[in-house]
Amino acid sequence: MNINQFQQELIEYATSIGIDKIGFTSASPFHELKNRLIRQQELEFASGFEEPDIEKRTQPELLLPEAESIISIAIAYPSKMKDAPLSQKGARRGIFARASWGMDYHTVLREKLAILELFILTHMPNARLRSMVDTGELSDRAVAERAGIGWSAKNCSIITPEFGSYVYLGEMITSIPFAPSEQMEEQCGDCRLCLDICPTGALIEGGQLNAQRCIAFITQTKTMVPDEFRAKIGNRIYGCDTCQTICPKNKGKANLHQQAFKPDPELVKPLLMPMLDMTNRIFKETYGHMSGAWRGKNPIQRNAIIALAHFKEVAAIPKLIELLENDLRPVIRGTAAWAIGKINTEEGLVALKKVEQTEEDKEVLDEIRKGLQFYTIEK
């Protein structure tokens, strides 16, 4: 079969099954990426969620010995939500980042890649293929940049002319020598809005990210949120979109055409108080189809408590006291103690003093004392 002709047929087929962009690159090593990843490790900027083996992340032939080329795909996700409910006193709401709207993108993109694999194998039965999305060894962004999907921006996203940075990425290593796509020139220019607006200074000059300071990462951790980041989280329940929403290249990019990612306003901008009562089963039934649920309910509930403190929601005090007194999870008890102090009611003060006498966990005790300090500051 003529490879060039088949490549064109593959591009047309990808479009027909709902893939928004497709590009191709060689399976040669990612030398520049390797240097960046080594530097990330030296600076302790990595999140820890990544594949730890840098060789596997940068040498496709280690993942597929017959590797000749890599196919990169992109599917756009929405940046706008219709009929978003308002957050108001007594009914405060959190927000899931846009990357968690609708169906879990891992599922959607894996299905698209599986369909592409079937199409390829139907025409080229001897082809060797290996697909991955996000949690695979390769860097989705590095592949997409080299495959001409978009350029690597200062906010560490891939920006496409058509959809801005609101795209999910996946790739397929193949034994087929597809012709490489033309790479796109970087178009950020002198703009540094994303660098200047990042709430925690996680974005470093030159498109480098200190993941340890990134709110998107912090909202996914399972431990106590460090003090310096709590006020920065605001009402974010999962993820952070600030460096995308400020980007001029995203202006006017609504991307409403992918039905799988159409958000349910009540789920992506949920009431905070009901989240605190969710069992594991109810959480999974309600949010299990969303990518933001992958770490389970504990980080989400911790973030909901921080959001209630952000709003200084007095109506939350009885529930927060209940969590402080009865919850078995130290992170939840401790975060509740801090939030009670932040909201600063007399009822909360009594509860903190009472529990201080019986709490045995040192970390929780530290948070109780932080909570009590708010009363000293306020008065």
Rank of each mutant, 00 (worst) to 15 (best):
I54C: 03
I54G: 02
E55D: 14
K56D: 07
R57W: 01
Q59S: 07
Q59R: 11
Q59N: 13
Q59M: 04
P60V: 06
P60E: 07
E61P: 01
L62D: 03
L62A: 01
L63V: 01
L63E: 04
L64T: 04
L64Y: 03
E66I: 00
A67M: 00
S69Q: 06
I70N: 03
I70Y: 11
A74L: 10
I75M: 14
A76D: 05
A76S: 15
Y77W: 07
P78W: 00
S79P: 07
S79A: 05
S79T: 14
S79L: 02
K80D: 07
K80W: 02
M81R: 00
M81Q: 01
K82W: 03
D83E: 11
A84C: 05
P85E: 00
P85C: 00
S87G: 15
S87A: 11
Q88A: 13
G90V: 02
G90L: 05
G90F: 02
A91C: 01
R93A: 03
F96W: 08
A97M: 06
A97H: 00
S100W: 00
S100F: 01
W101S: 03
G102P: 04
G102V: 04
M103W: 07
M103D: 13
M103A: 13
Y105D: 06
H106R: 06
T107Q: 12
T107H: 11
V108M: 01
R110Q: 13
R110M: 14
E111R: 14
E111W: 11
E111C: 09
K112W: 05
K112F: 08
K112G: 03
K112R: 14
L113W: 11
A114K: 14
A114C: 04
E117Y: 04
E117W: 03
L118Y: 12
L118V: 13
L118D: 14
F119Y: 15
F119R: 09
L121Y: 09
L121T: 12
T122N: 15
T122A: 14
T122F: 13
M124I: 15
M124E: 13
P125S: 08
N126R: 13
A127T: 09
R128V: 09
R128G: 01
R128T: 12
L129C: 03
M132H: 14
V133G: 03
D134M: 07
T135F: 12
T135C: 06
T135E: 08
G136K: 06
L138C: 04
L138P: 04
D140R: 02
D140T: 05
R141F: 09
R141I: 09
A142Q: 14
A142L: 09
A142W: 10
A142V: 10
V143F: 10
R146P: 06
A147R: 05
I149Y: 11
I149Q: 11
W151A: 12
S152T: 07
A153S: 15
K154C: 01
N155D: 05
I158L: 10
I158Y: 06
I159V: 15
T160Y: 12
T160E: 12
T160Q: 11
P161C: 08
